[in-house]
Design a protein around this nucleic acid. Structure first.
Lengths: 336, 336
DNA sequence: CCTAGCACTCTATTCTATCGAGTGCCAATA
DNA sequence: TATTGGCACTCGATAGAATAGAGTGCTAGG
């Protein structure tokens, strides 16, 4: 067992992945001999494939079938043959470019539209996570009277997102007092990260102070809510697998947003952009791969986009799409 | 052919639907004779079922199988046996009640949480449509300075929803001028329906007037964006059908939000709460039924909720759930 | 080191036979 | 006249056997 990957073995592995991704059927030695740029006989290819199987890169569904890649096989393929540079074809590039120049509107729509764009580009499920609360700064705080005992708290953050909440008061408060409180809060909290809010010093006016305390309390709650996730492409999942069981399992998993978010976070924290099958550590997603990319706004990484498809996916194309969309989103958000 | 539905035939039809909804298998005469409260022999039941088939209420998958209901059969069942009153069981009622008393937060989250509630109650896909722009009144308009030449326009509407847009100015404007404009716009536009905005009379200050015109223009654009749809429960669709093709078709259709919205609108406009299979007039949803209910806020019907499941669904339970949730949502929105 | 040849394995397909659920019809019955 | 037991019939579902073919591993010879 020469547990070592010479260039011919690598070429064969590559060809198996390419072929299987395209046709979804186990690929045999004779097919490879015909197709690939490998000028050796099927018998030689069989020998190599045998080695590749023993080393864990390929597997056989059954004795008399061709080979399909294992997760380890995909991993080698991705690490060796898929470049992370944006060498995508021009058509895609243009459509993405166009999308981001035309796109405007609220942040939430921006994210969900981006998610839809990515799912349509790739035909797999797309995930876009909004900015995490640590990177969000408070820009403005407004208090708007709904009726004498209820006030709407509005917060605008540094990314232009708006959060709101209704405050219930035990006592009545006048519009002018609200204005004082609004101004005080905005002046005091502008530029403060949403993640690190402390109590404001009292102003001396009991009514205003009371509402300020209430407001800061509520602002803290926004911390959790700014964690937003946009997942699109359920129908693509149904197209990607032919066992309805698998479809169900994957969709159920994707509906647990926190799970998807932490999954993406985990992949990124390992410095990876791709995670394959068992690498995900989530049983229902054993047949899935995830491709992720953070996006950068004004030099700062604020969120990430991801893609969930079958392990048997076109990695080069998907990686290019994810890179492109994350770059586009970052650029767009830096401008607006 | 006595093309007339006596009470025994109706009872048999009812039993077929009940049984088929529960077991998903064609039901035969002997099973019915055992189960149902019908005290006649299988032979008699066969005769009745034969009639029901010829009249279009039942059908046979193949000669030697039991019967399953047709769309017409389901329709008769719903019209005859399913009451539209809220006689749901107490457990459900409590959990829904609890949800709506605890629920708070932004309108968008309210809707998507409601959609999730309904999909979890019923195990089918849920749709919640937000208020249509005609019924929305402006409550407050705020202008917030981002930098000297850019201003964030915020609008709060009568339902507590917030819309925002960044305005790009050709000239610089001071914070105090912004405050004047904010106050003017709020005073002038409070209570005006978003659907019918006209130009404000000029105030005399050119800078302020210019930004007011710009703001009103932008407010008009919000009209389209307040039309919101929240669809949840893709994984439930995957569980409801066992043909992956059907799952794919249904999911693709549900992703076309405008289609779903107009579907619900159509059903409601006919004064119906249930539409079954072919009645929907949408080929990919031939195997689906839709249950809808408008919800009422402060006496006015502002939106609707809907449910999409297989024709073979538990209509009484689903109708109760939809009614309950729509009532809860309406009540909650009337308060907040 | 490569490759042609060959025996072998195992799936997928086809065909047949059989089983059994459920029917429609008819004659008997209350 | 309405109901029912009896019965022949239909047809899908299941199982078994035979076949074809794809692809393999191994070996021996270039």
């Amino acid at each position: 067992m020469s547990g070592f990957m010479d260039s011919r073995k690598a070429a064969i592995l590559r060809a198996v992945v390419d072929e299987y991704v395209q046709c979804a059927e186990p690929v045999g030695s004779s097919l490879l001999a015909r197709i690939a740029g490998i000028q050796v006989s099927p018998a030689t290819i069989r020998n190599e494939m045998n080695l590749l199987e023993h080393e864990g890169y390929l597997t056989q569904p059954h004795t008399s079938a061709g080979r399909i890649p294992t997760d380890k096989g995909y991993r080698y393929y991705v690490d060796t043959f898929v470049s992370d540079t944006n060498d995508s074809d021009v058509m895609q590039f243009q459509s993405v470019e166009e999308f981001f120049t035309k796109a405007h509107g609220a942040l939430a729509e921006m994210f969900s539209d981006t998610s839809r764009l990515l799912t349509n580009l790739t035909n797999y499920a797309a995930v876009v996570t909004g900015p995490s609360p640590e990177t969000v700064l408070i820009r403005s705080v407004q208090l708007i009277s709904l009726d004498p005992k209820r006030v709407l708290l509005l917060m605008v953050d540094s990314k232009g997102a708006v959060e709101k909440k209704t405050l219930e008061l035990s006592i009545e408060i006048s519009e002018s007092e609200l204005e004082v409180a609004s101004n005080f809060l905005t002046r005091r909290l502008r530029g403060v990260p949403l993640g690190s809010l402390d109590e404001p010093e009292p102003l001396g006016e009991p009514l205003v102070d009371q509402i300020c305390v209430l407001a800061v309390e509520s602002l803290r709650e926004f911390q959790g809510e700014t964690e937003s996730v946009y997942i699109e492409g359920a129908s693509k999942v149904a197209s990607a697998f032919d066992a309805v069981d698998t479809v169900r399992r994957v969709l159920v998993t994707l509906e647990q947003h926190f799970l998807v978010v932490s999954l993406i976070r985990d992949v990124l924290s390992k410095g990876q952009k791709v995670a394959i099958g068992s690498e995900l550590g989530i049983a229902p997603l054993a047949e899935c791969s995830v491709v992720v990319s953070p996006y950068v706004v004004e030099g700062e990484q604020v969120g990430s986009i991801g893609l969930v498809g079958p392990t048997r996916m076109n990695y080069p194309k998907v990686l290019a799409a994810v890179n492109l969309v994350s770059a586009g989103l970052g650029k767009r958000l830096s401008e607006g």
